[in-house]
Computed example of a mutant assay.
Amino acid sequence: MISDEDELIRRIHQEAHDSYDEELELELEDRHIDELAGGTDALRDASYRENRRRYFRELFRLQGELVKLQDWVVASGHKVVILFEGRDAAGKGGVIKRITQRLNPRVCRVAALPAPNDRERTQWYFQRYAAHLPAAGEMVLFDRSWYNRAGVERVMGFCNDDQYEEFFRSAPEFERMLVRSGIQLIKYWFSISDDEQRLRFLGRIHDPLKQWKLSPMDLESRRRWEDYTKAKEIMLERTHIAEAPWWVVAADDKKKARLNCIQHLLQQMPYEEVPHPRIELPQRERHEDYLRNPVPQDMFVPQVY
């Protein structure tokens, strides 16, 4: 006979397994559609399975460290801004997902700004980004940032030569100002090869669940690969400053890129484990005069599954 305590432990374990399924869902997103449809050779390969186990083992370990980092950021009042830049399909969104997956969104939030509207185009260029900067005890991850001006805006002709040059005069000073104000600024460039971007774009084209990721701008960026390369080289040269240097992540291998980036991020802050008081679940109060009202059946979502 199964005791109530045994059943409770079973339910707790089931909940843990369900949470780990989230990683599997993210993993499936990264696999090519032909492998999902029928190519199982990779799944049967022992070395592939072992590498996959090692990846998840390291990912879970690093995510545990990220939780410690989050606690330290809150306790110390630290302020952190992390920029993620790179070509389309370089893997920026994937690493951001893994960093934020187990963190409190009130502490660690993502800023992914759309194209500026008509009003924002008349503002100081950095103004709309400044509105998302962290207060004490917060981490902000920019999925693309003010470096749009040095990349897509330059290549696609969305800014003129004067605006482009003004950006390079202003960006280092803006970043030094952030650092002087107590904000730690970390900048990552995700670097992928020509062949790898082509492969990832083809994967999106042939995967109906990912086609939404491909915009006309993405396709045009593929055609202008060399223009983006020149713009990137100029950007890194002119904005690699001591107060906020660039860090380049080799990103042809998505899994390695994620682990390497998270490991490096953790090394950038002198965090330590923050002691917490022991948590005790309080007993629920029960009152004899309490009666739970039944919910009408027509208010329930149909149980299709």
Rank of each mutant, 00 (worst) to 15 (best):
P216W: 07
R128I: 05
S170A: 14
S191T: 01
A131N: 05
L202C: 00
S181P: 03
R149D: 03
H206W: 02
Y188S: 05
M139T: 13
R204G: 11
I205G: 00
M156T: 14
G203W: 01
S145E: 08
P216S: 07
L133F: 15
Q163F: 02
A150F: 10
E175L: 03
L185W: 03
L178Q: 10
W212Y: 15
H132D: 09
E153W: 11
K213T: 08
S145N: 11
S145K: 11
E175G: 02
S145P: 05
R149T: 04
N160T: 13
R144S: 12
E175W: 01
L202Y: 11
A135D: 14
R200N: 11
L199S: 12
Y164K: 04
G203N: 13
L209V: 11
S221T: 01
S145Y: 06
E196H: 06
A150P: 12
N160L: 10
F174D: 00
E166T: 14
F158G: 13
C159M: 09
S191V: 03
L209D: 09
Q197M: 07
D161W: 12
L199E: 13
M177E: 09
E220I: 09
S215M: 07
K210V: 07
K210F: 10
Y147L: 06
M139D: 03
A130Y: 01
G203F: 03
F174R: 02
D162I: 12
A130T: 11
R180Q: 14
A136F: 00
S193I: 06
E153A: 02
D143P: 08
Q163C: 08
P172I: 02
L141K: 08
L202E: 15
D207K: 08
L202R: 15
L199V: 12
I183T: 13
D195W: 00
D207M: 08
S221N: 14
R200M: 13
W189S: 02
P134L: 00
G182R: 09
G137V: 06
E138D: 07
G137M: 06
P216T: 07
E153H: 10
D194V: 05
R128A: 00
V152S: 10
S181E: 14
Q163R: 08
Y164W: 15
P172G: 08
D161Y: 11
A135T: 09
E220C: 07
C159A: 15
D194Q: 13
F201L: 15
E220K: 14
Y188M: 05
M217K: 10
M177R: 04
E173F: 01
